[in-house]
Design a protein around this nucleic acid. Sequence first.
DNA 1: CTTTCGATGATCT
DNA 2: GATCATCGAAAGG
Length: 183
Amino acid sequence: MRLDFNADPVSLARQLLGWTLTVDGVGGFIVETEAYDVDDAASRSFKGRTARNAAMFGPPGHAYVYLIYGLHWCLNVVCRETGHGAAVLIRALAPTHGLNVMRERRRVAKIELLASGPGRVGQALGIDKRLDGLPLDRPPFELLPPIAAIDVASGPRIGITKAADLPWRFGIAGSPFLSRRLG
DNA sequence: CTTTCGATGATCT
DNA sequence: GATCATCGAAAGG
């Protein structure tokens, strides 16, 4: 099984569900993603390339990391061809690797809250600016294929004001680790 | 269960 | 000075 990072973000967002993502051996399987495309008013790449979003215009299969609301680090997977500015936001994981490390970083008792949201994923995996632009197929990252078939659900994206009607949020149907329920 | 609101800082206008 | 792909706590039903 292989991921096609050259695909469009909607396709990659669906492909990524069920893959296990770890940083320094800490993480879980991807349960929720969001697509951000070229010419997408909700995307940080919409107004063109800047210092902040440069990684989005770099090679597919690399990380794009940014700080939101001054305190949360969010992790994206760059896709399409180099120079396009499309990516998939990792919104939630089902924790499987390094549970103790994540609990220490997050300081929450419930396993459902360890990585169920983009900011929570960032905190649980220790994501920050150092990882911006790094390839996802080499340490500290690791991506492992799904072990079972995935039942995909979709719905509108969250926390955006533009193009908010597009159903570009994807998740594993019925998972208790989704940041919010999905239709 | 729901809604509201403050925290916090880099980036862009 | 405004914006922002969020979170968590607090307040209200």
